[in-house]
Simulated assay, not measured.
Amino acid sequence: MPLPRQAGHPLPAAPIDPDRDEARRLLTEELESGDYRLQEPWLTRAWRWFVEQLPDVPDLGALPPWTTWAVLGLVLCAVAAVLVFASRDRWRAGRLAPQAAAGPVLGGARRSAADYRTSAREALSAERVDEAVLDGYRALAAGAIERTLLDDRPGRTAHEVAQELSPVFPVHADDLRRAGDVFDAVRYGDHRASTEQAQAVLALDERLLDSRPELAAAAPRSTVPS
């Protein structure tokens, strides 16, 4: 005879003893709940949504000829977006990487400005543009020292050359700064120069030779002007 149930005390539920299929179903429902679902990147979710919006090929029927090119264009645009997004962090890391410390413009055995100019022009003719940039800017610095527009101070960097010559040649201040940046990028930043950049450095050196300096703004001289 079954025992009477007391008020306010429900009988315990019968233990669940599912078979294999039922257990798999319960496990699947549990894993699909929010507690176990992995967070996908928004780009992956957006791509899945885009693919789901495309109609099935059998449902399209006869398509005009341009449809194939349109779909191909959409796919290429999507692939390009994925590549840009994937390379974003690498590009930012390259932009934020510390630059190498700049060194002197005129290091090692000292040569005349004319020698530097000859080497720069020969290098440019032989399409050795990096060498043309370096020797072209060295010719500019050596020429300023020979004209006593700069004192013969060892260790002067390209930035310092541009900074000290800018008041002397104010019209060419921006060109001096850009040429100094190119020199540092090639010499100490492991960058490759372009032919246009090499030509610009050599042309700047020639313009400075033809320009009259503002001597009141020149750096203190260590030698007597000739």
Rank of each mutant, 00 (worst) to 15 (best):
W49A: 09
R5K: 09
R110D: 13
D152P: 04
V105G: 07
A101S: 12
E164I: 04
L11C: 04
D205R: 15
R95G: 05
G189H: 12
A109Y: 09
V82G: 09
R121P: 00
A218R: 13
H172K: 02
P18G: 08
P2T: 13
Q197A: 15
R37Q: 11
A109G: 09
V161Q: 02
G107R: 08
Q163T: 09
D151M: 01
M1H: 13
S226P: 15
F85C: 03
D151V: 00
D130C: 03
R88E: 02
S211Q: 01
L74W: 09
R192Y: 13
L43Q: 11
D181T: 14
L149W: 13
T28N: 05
A139N: 02
H159F: 07
A123W: 01
T223H: 10
D59S: 02
P2F: 12
E22G: 08
V186P: 15
T44N: 14
P104H: 05
L176V: 01
Q197R: 13
L202K: 10
P4G: 07
A158P: 08
P170N: 10
R5C: 06
R147L: 06
T223D: 07
T44G: 13
A7G: 04
S194I: 05
A139S: 06
A219H: 14
A13K: 03
W47C: 09
R37V: 06
G61L: 01
L165Y: 02
L76Y: 09
W66E: 11
A132T: 05
A81C: 10
E127Y: 07
A81Y: 03
L202A: 12
L134I: 09
P55G: 10
Q99E: 12
P15S: 02
V161P: 05
R221F: 11
V57P: 01
A14Q: 07
F183K: 08
V224K: 11
L149G: 09
V79P: 02
W91A: 07
P154D: 10
A179Y: 04
L149Q: 12
A62Y: 01
E122K: 05
R5P: 11
A14D: 07
P15E: 03
E22Y: 02
A132M: 05
D130T: 04
L38S: 13
P58D: 03
R128E: 07
R153M: 10
D35G: 06
A185G: 15
G73P: 04
A193P: 10
D17E: 01
W49G: 04
L3R: 14
L176E: 02
T118E: 08
A218G: 05
P225G: 14
R117Q: 08
R128T: 00
A81V: 07
P98V: 09
A144S: 06
A216I: 06
S222Y: 10
L11D: 10
R117S: 07
A218T: 06
S87F: 00
A198D: 13
L43F: 08
L209R: 15
R117I: 00
R45D: 15
S211Y: 00
R153E: 14
L209C: 13
Q163R: 10
W66T: 07
S226N: 14
A200N: 14
V182R: 12
P213C: 03
A142R: 06
S87T: 01
G73V: 06
L43T: 10
L38P: 15
A158S: 15
V105M: 06
P15N: 01
D205K: 14
P58G: 01
A126K: 05
P154N: 08
L208S: 11
L63W: 00
A78R: 12
D56V: 00
T28Q: 06
P12D: 08
G34D: 14
S87H: 00
